[in-house]
Amino acid sequence: MSLITTHRRELSVAAAYGVLLVALILFAPAFYQGANLRDVLVGAAPVLVAAVGMTLVILARQIDISIGSQFAICAVVAGMLAKAGLAMPIAAAGALAAGASLGALNGVLVAGFGLPAIVVTLATMVGLREALRWATEGVWVQDLPPGFQWMGFGQDVGRFAIPGLALVVWALVAWGMRHLAAGRAVYATGSDAEVARLTGVRPRRVVFGVFVVMGALTGLAALLSAIQFIDVQTNSGVGFELRVIAAVVVGGTSIAGGKGSLVGSLLGVLLLATAGPALTFLGSQAYWDRALQGVIILVAVAADAFGSATRLKARP
């Protein structure tokens, strides 16, 4: 198979992204100032980290819509640990651990009890969000030590480190998905759990694993987002799950499992993260933004489906 057929979906997203970038060169060259590109990348970093986890979840034929609520809880955990006087690395580890535990909760319910992921995570999404609201009344975690913002590394380092770290996470997982048995097990589980089981993969363990990884990466995403500020908003991350899932499916990962790649997800994240500011640069009114974002999602998936539909017909 040629590169074009195996990576058709990634190429079509890349093409769409290319069109957007060219439009910006023509109509809003100011978009390409260094500071703006940096800010777009910093803003995209938490979404990318979570999208890495979501790609694994969807590849394993699952879904997790609770990550917005997890995101809020992990940020609050990091803030509270830092406020309690613990060193920032410990607070950071706390956020990841909190995420991993919440992911494990989803994982036990889905893999252990065999319950459908979309309903389980609908329940944890609502339950966790309301429990957090009840506990905090939305009051922010404030008066944090000065070392909280940028983890004490300062703004200049922090603004490079955040997207850098996100890219490192992405690259490591992308490499692992190609070259490690665990990565192939995720694909196998998502393609056909029964066949996977017969070839020695343990699908339930894989499913549990992807939820834990999803949670831990959500914790990391929350941390990377929280440390850009001096205090922690408690009810953050509303709608985060939709942004992440949209990025992953626009990037071509099949909701039916087993098909997709992290390259596609990276492109999906970049496309959606660029689209928001790009619309402002192109002079769009804010109140049309949501509609245009819906159009971008639909066009990306419909173009692909249209392509495969015509190809199917052309087949003898």
């Binding site: 987002s225 500020f229 908003q233 953050s236 509303v238 928001g276 402002t280 640069f281 804010a286």
Partner: peptide
């Protein structure tokens, strides 16, 4: 010159302001 939404989210307000200042 412009009114941008934040959806009561501090991060969104932050990102909208960043873009706004450049546009």
């Amino acid at each position: 010159v412009d009114v941008r939404p934040s959806d009561d989210d501090r991060k969104r307000a932050f990102e909208e302001t960043q873009t706004l200042l450049k546009v």
